[in-house]
Every structure is written in C-alpha cells, then in structure tokens.
Design a protein around this nucleic acid. Sequence first.
RNA 1: CGCGGGGUAGAGCAGUUCGGUAGCUCGUCGGGCUCAUAACCCGGAGGUCGAGGGUUCAAGUCCCUCCCCCGCAA
Length: 315
Amino acid sequence: MRVVFLGTPDFGVPSLKALHSAGYEIAGVFTQPDRPKGRGNKMVKSPVKECAEALGIPVFQPVKIRADGVEALRSLQPDLCVTAAFGQILSQEILDIPRIGTVNVHSSLLPRYRGSAPINWAILEGETVTGVTTMMTDKGLDTGDILLQKSVEILPGETAGELTDRLAPIGAALLIETLRRIEQGNCPRTPQNEAEASYFPMLKKEMAPIDWRMPASRIVCRVRGLSPWPGTTLAWGDGETVKVLRAEEVDASGGPGEILAADAKRGLIVAAGEGAVRVTALQAPGGKAMDARDYFRGHPCAHTRCLLTEEEKNE
RNA sequence: CGCGGGGUAGAGCAGUUCGGUAGCUCGUCGGGCUCAUAACCCGGAGGUCGAGGGUUCAAGUCCCUCCCCCGCAA
C-alpha cells in the first residue's frame, strides 16, 4: 500500500517511524515549510522533516497544500494518506486524491476535544482520562468517522508536554493497527455522536497570565495544561513577570492573589479564589528554570502583597 | 547580521559605573541550646570569578577574541 504522510511537530514522528518500520511504502512526506526559529532566526526543519530525511523519504513543503500542493500529492498516487498534527486544513480536492481515504491520528477521545490543542484542553478542563483516536478525515474539523480509539490515563501533575510525549507512540501503534485492519477489511467505522461533541480553540499566549480569582485547582490545571506553551505567568506589582513552571494546590486561605509566603524556606504560596497555590518551580526573565525556594535565596522578596491587577480588583 | 538577559563556593544572587583583601542568603561539616519550630547560637570547610589573550605596580572589574546557558519575537 502506497502511503503519503503529512505531519509537522514531534507528535507525528513516532507515527512516521512506525509506518516505515511496519513496511509501508511511504511515497512522500508533507510537512510545514522550514521556518526561522530561535535565537538568530535560523531556519529550522520540522521534526517530521528531519525524520523523513533520515529515512530517505522525499519531502514536500507547500506553504498551503490546498493551493500549491495538490499536483505534487496527486503525482505520488497514494492509496492512503495519513495525517498526524500536520497543521494545515485539507480541502475536499486533497481528500479526494488518495484511493482509500485519509486517516488522521488525533490525540483525544473523539468526539470530545476536537480542535488543534486537545491534549492541553483535556488537562485544562481537569480531565483524568484522555486518549488517541484514529479517524477518517472529512471536510469538517475533526468530524470524520471514528476508526479505533485507545484511552489513556492522565497522570497526577502531568503537563501537556509530558502527556504529548507519552501519547505520540500510543497513537503510532494505534495507527498501525488501524491500517492493518483496513487492509484486512475489518476495521470498525463509527460516525461521531454530534450530541457529545466538543470543540476547543487554538491556544493563545494571552492565556498565560494567571487569574488568581480562579479556584486553586483550576490554576494548577492551567499551569499543567499550558506547558510548555504558552506557559503560565504571574506578574509582581513592579512590572516583573515570571513564568510559573510547576504548581500544586495547598491548604491555606486568603484574599485572591494575596501572597501568603515568598521566601527560601516555604517557596511561594498565593491565595486563590478557592484555596491556595504553591508555586514550586519558576523562571525569571532571562534566567533558567529553578525551584521557587532557590529563587528567593537570591531574590529577597520586596514585592507587593497582592498579585491581582488594579483592573481585576475593580471588576 | 532580528531584539534582549546571563555565566562569581554545592544552590540562588550582590560586587563590574569609578581597577586596590572574595561578599550575602541558604546548603554542608563540627559543636552548643530547646518540650517544641520555616527553629536558634558559635565555629569550620568549600572559589582556575565561563575560556584565552592584552593593558596595568595591581583585573571579578578596563580592551580584544571565543565558548556556553536563557527569554522575546517568529
């Protein structure tokens, strides 16, 4: 079976590797164009491109596959397309090219958590279970028929980044099982139940600042769910902002945003809308990540007593 | 040449403006004290100040070159 793989970030790499080692003929790989990244704005290849090149597979990088990638894909004459976090919407014209269709690996238990950041949102919503789904891509956004699913427990304290790393190989294994069963002609295919469907939007960096009026449990979920990007931040009153990398709920109380402790012994404890949050790891501007207690050894705290902004207080 | 922060004891930092004895908060080791604590008191060990070169009587500090870490923007 001739397969074309479409993917971009790390999440897709295990699936590509699995296809290769399972013996599928991979006619080509589509991935997002190289982009200037990091310090110095150096051009960086996507992880999927790195992998494809290492495997000796031709790589295609249309800026917009719907516009300038159609002929390239058609010329590869795929029996099947596989997508895993490709990052571009496929048009009906694209979907019509592969003989069998397009299988997508999605990191949630569809029909819940449709959208481009299902792992983050599952944690943000306080879920304890999520999973991966293989589905037949159709013109809607993550609306196609479900093929196979596997549920996965979300570990206590697990961040979105960590869960992504854990889900990627699980998705790859599920993909191979899906293709095997398609070839055998016994793959289940179930339309999604629209009544149970939920959709969550892309993450924005505007989501990073903590709103201390939220319950402590919810703030901790945000720290986990928004890691590593866009991250979670708190602002001292003086304009300084630090990234909050790790936090846990603790039993204490005070007015929302009130600093209950900020020293080298106890670390940083801030009261929330309900309960309180202990920040256990943070990162100052220009600095590296560190334990909150280490931070206060060198930064004697002379900050404000409350982390709510004037705006928030007045609301 | 995208913008910017940083490298000083095991950890986190100050000291660099204007060259002149290596400091702080912790940790650690030894001793003491307390019913007790995020304890407290006394004492000690621990540093090629990222690397190399230059200027100087004298460089953590000034000049040149290089290495490494990090944030933003994309």
